[in-house]
Design a protein around this nucleic acid. Structure first.
Lengths: 152, 152
DNA sequence: TCCTTGTCGATGCAATTGCATCTATATGGA
DNA sequence: TCCATATAGATGCAATTGCATCGACAAGGA
C-alpha cells in the first residue's frame, strides 16, 4: 500500500489554515478571558440552543453540531446548568433522555459573549478581507468539509 | 466605547474556518492514533528541530514556531527526551539555557509521522482543491495572520 | 562587589480532557 | 414474555493542560 504525497501547495495551504485558525481562536479566547467570560464552547452550545427555541435540543443532537465528544457535551451541559444558563427537562417518550433548553440568563450570557466574540470576528476577519474575499474564502473552505458544500 | 459588529460574510468565513480546521486536524490526529503514532505537536517540534540541523534550537525559540505555551514546550521536550527523540545539551554562554537537538530516532519518528500526516494532507486538501485554488486559499489565509503576509 | 531586575526553563497544584465503562431505558426478535 | 443488543447520558480514573510560581543564572547600574 503506497502512501500519497501532498503537493507543496497543499502543504502550504494546510500549514496556514491550521496556524491561522489557532491564532484567531486563541486571540478570541484571550479577549473573552480578559473580560471574565466563559470559553467559546459555551457560546457554541448557547447559540445552538437559542436557535432551537423553546423546544430545546437533546444532548446527542448537540454532539455533531458543536463538534464535541459525548462526554464533553455531558460535562459542559452540567456546568451550564449549574450556572443556570440552561435547564434540563425530562422527555416523555424516552426515559433515558432529556431535553435541554436555554434560560433567560443563558440568552443574556450569549449576548454578552457575542459582544466580544463578534467584535473579535469583525477585527480579525472583516477588517482584513473584503466581502468578496471573505466569500471566496468561505467557498474554498466549504469544499474542504466533510461532506463538501455545494456553493455560494 | 462601541463594539464593532461583524459582517455576515465575515461570520460565515469565520465559522467555516474554525470548523473545517478542527475537522481536518481531528481527522489527522485520529489517523495517527490509529497507527500508534504520537500527536501532531510532536511532529511540529521534530520538524523544526530537523530544519534547524545540528545546531539545534533553544526551547524559547520553539515557543513561537510551534504556537505552544512555555510550559507546553518544556513538558513536550521532556517527553521527547524520555523517548530518545531529542537530546538536551548545555549551552556554553548561558548557564540557564540548553540546546535541543533531534536524534537519529527522532528523525526516524518524524519520517514515520509524515507518512501518515502527508497522506492526510494530500487526501484532505490536495484531492479537493486544485493547485490554483490551494494557492488562492493560502494567500487569503496569509492576510489573516499576525502580522499579515505580503503575497502568495 | 552588591543589588535589582529580567530571562530561561521547570514544576506543584488545580482544572480540564480522554478513555473506558457504567446505569438505565429502549428495541426487536424468539 | 424474556432475552440479547443497542442507545442516551453520566462518571471514575488517568493523562494532559493551564496557571502561578519557583530556582537558577544573566545583565547592568550604583
Amino acid at each position: 500500500m503506497t502512501k500519497k504525497s501532498p503537493s507543496p501547495e497543499a502543504v502550504t495551504a494546510w500549514a496556514r489554515l491550521v496556524r491561522v485558525s489557532r491564532q484567531l481562536v486563541e486571540s478570541t479566547e484571550d479577549a473573552l478571558k480578559a473580560r471574565g467570560l466563559p470559553p467559546l464552547a459555551w457560546y457554541d452550545v448557547l447559540h445552538e440552543l437559542a436557535e432551537a427555541g423553546e423546544g430545546g435540543l437533546r444532548p446527542f443532537e448537540l454532539i455533531d453540531r458543536v463538534l464535541l465528544a459525548q462526554y464533553g457535551v455531558s460535562r459542559l451541559l452540567a456546568r451550564l446548568e449549574a450556572d443556570g444558563l440552561v435547564e434540563k427537562l425530562p422527555v416523555s417518550d424516552d426515559g433515558r433522555g432529556q431535553t435541554v433548553r436555554i434560560t433567560a440568563s443563558g440568552r443574556e450570557m450569549r449576548r454578552r459573549i457575542w459582544a466580544v466574540y463578534g467584535a473579535s470576528i469583525a477585527e480579525l476577519m472583516g477588517d482584513r478581507l473584503s466581502a468578496e474575499e471573505l466569500k471566496a474564502l468561505a467557498t474554498l473552505l466549504g469544499r474542504l468539509r466533510h461532506p463538501p458544500i455545494e456553493n455560494h
